[in-house]
Design a protein around this nucleic acid. Structure first.
Lengths: 192, 192
DNA sequence: TACTATACGGAACGTTCGCTCCGGTTAGCC
DNA sequence: GGCTAACCGGAGCGAACGTTCCGTATAGTA
């Protein structure tokens, strides 16, 4: 329960080809599920990844296990990015850089999130400790920005997360709206 | 192509029990799909509506036809509400009343929209003329509000629609964020 | 190079689900 | 009340999909 992936197995190191295949499947599944929904068959994922169905099931014993692995992978990536921004950029800028990144590049993640939500799967309790890590990283960015005076002091981490989710939806289903103007409204609202 | 439901059939008037069953199925399907996703079997919808599967398929020849009918039904309801508000309330207030209604009560619709989006179904081109009717009604509210000076003049109908979609997502997946504060940010950004 | 544990591919199985079909029932009308 | 067309329920069919199994291939090692 204490290792990074949330599983307990004693981590036998994978063979080189196995590691390659696992990563390929994870990436392909992420893209396909986000773009076309969770209805895509495992056989199809396997085909596009250039492996057999058995290989997919060896790495991810169930289709839901594959969903989870994808989400965990994405969240870890986002947390790493947030930490890097916090360490690299000026406090006032790091927050908005992450905000922009989440709302633009994150539209693909939104596709996956919608697919999961549409299936009745709640992200929050699929991976509680990763949720916490994300909130911690975001909280750090937020606190720095509030201390620097670039974000109004009364908003909480939960508020910001919620706003980002909303902005992702705007980006993804925006239609012919002007993204700058729409996002501008929200960002303006966050200033003190 | 010119009748309200978007189908061409020469409108034979339904028998009383048929009309009852159709309405019941539509309502049950709306609630169930929005709450549990599109994966729920037709047999289950039929069971909860208290009819046989054959009855569902007589009214909606395909599962996708059922999706469409639900969406059309909802949009017609929203358009009617928008028109009523425009005729009833003060111009400056009608817009925000509709905005609130869409972002709070509309969370259920968001569940359905997510399910459809998660399945790769684009609402925009499922029902183009209803999309247009919605935009017209919303446009009327917006124009009145802008003329009354309660909404900044540079936002378009598409912008507002996008913002509402985002706010619905915030409501639905807000977690422990404070709804008033989060929505307040967006509404504040809409003021001149 | 030879040996073995590990991983691979894809055929096959059981289940689920969309959809059809038909014998029975009921609403609308005289 | 009796007649007919419209409608109903639910068993059953075929296809699709998640998952398993096993004979074959290959990475790692001496």
């Amino acid at each position: 329960m204490s290792d990074r992936s949330g599983t307990v197995e004693p981590v036998k190191p994978l063979r080189a080809d196995a590691r390659r295949n696992r990563a390929k499947v994870l990436q392909v599944a992420y893209e396909v599920f986000a773009a076309e929904g969770l209805g895509v068959p495992i056989d199809e994922i396997a085909r596009r990844a250039g492996v057999g169905a058995g290989t997919v099931y060896r790495h991810f014993p169930t289709k839901e296990a594959l969903y989870r692995a994808i989400v965990v992978d994405r969240v870890e990536h986002l947390v790493a990015t947030a930490r890097e921004l916090a360490a690299t950029q000026a406090p006032g800028e790091a927050f908005y850089a992450f905000f922009d990144l989440m709302t633009t590049e994150g539209a693909t993640d939104k596709g996956l999130a919608d697919a999961l939500a549409g299936e009745g799967i709640d992200l929050g309790d699929v991976m509680p400790e990763h949720e916490r890590a994300f909130k911690d990283a975001l909280g750090q960015l937020l606190r720095l920005a509030q201390a620097a005076g670039t974000v109004r002091p009364d908003v909480t981490v939960a508020d910001v997360k919620t706003l980002m989710v909303g902005c992702q939806a705007m980006q993804r289903y925006g239609g012919d709206a002007a993204p700058e103007r729409v996002l501008g409204v929200v960002r303006e609202g966050l200033r003190p």
